[in-house]
Amino acid sequence: MSFLSRGPAPAWPLAAPADGGPGNPWFSWRYVHDNASEILSALQFHAGLTARAVIIALIVALPLAVVSYWWRPLTGPILALSGILYTIPSLALLALVAPAVGTTSDTSVLIALVLYALLVLVRNALAGLTQVPAEVRDAAAGMGYGRLGRLWRIELPLALPGILTGLRLATVSTVALVTVGSLIGKGGLGEMILGGFRNNFYKAEIMTGTILCVGLALVLDLALAGLGRLLTPWARERAA
């Protein structure tokens, strides 16, 4: 039974009619039901690619942020480079990476995603680290903490809100960015959105892909926000 469509549902058309009539509703449970396995695998691919990109970016970004926090002269160049890379459009970056890495491999998309996520993460982690108050650092030094101990026990925990803000921003924008991978057929849910457009403007397919994409971003954002509350109980107490 198609949701939002009027009249008797005919045998489901392979492609939607072009007239946008009752046979081509914006959303259809029938479509979701009939294509559940394809939808799930697209969602899985999308989420997996996002997770890989964000985790790799985090692993690279934290040391970079710490390095530029310890050696301040590096901050300028790192942020300037990040600004320039950030300005380069995703499609252009993919077009530059894909021919060299492989036009059918999701590694190309992964590289572009990691580069974008990296920049958000480095900026926010650095902002978090630099706003650790000087008195706190002095107190930690006075208690006998070395550079590493201070970083691990004092500075990184205090920078957690900044790091988590960066992580949330990076995750949400990565989920949206994965769709650009449709350029080389590795767009996850973007494949559904574009596939619906090419499949004679099949609205239900486009809408399902879009809703899942936005939903995935919101769910991951909420999950990370919850993780942040768990990891920084002191911030919660202060707010309450």
């Binding site: 403007f201 809408m207 879009t210 971003a217």
Partner: peptide
Amino acid sequence: ANLTLAVPTLALLTILPL
């Protein structure tokens, strides 16, 4: 502003022509 961050450009580009 945060909500638009989650919406893929591709989605709007395909939905609006319809």
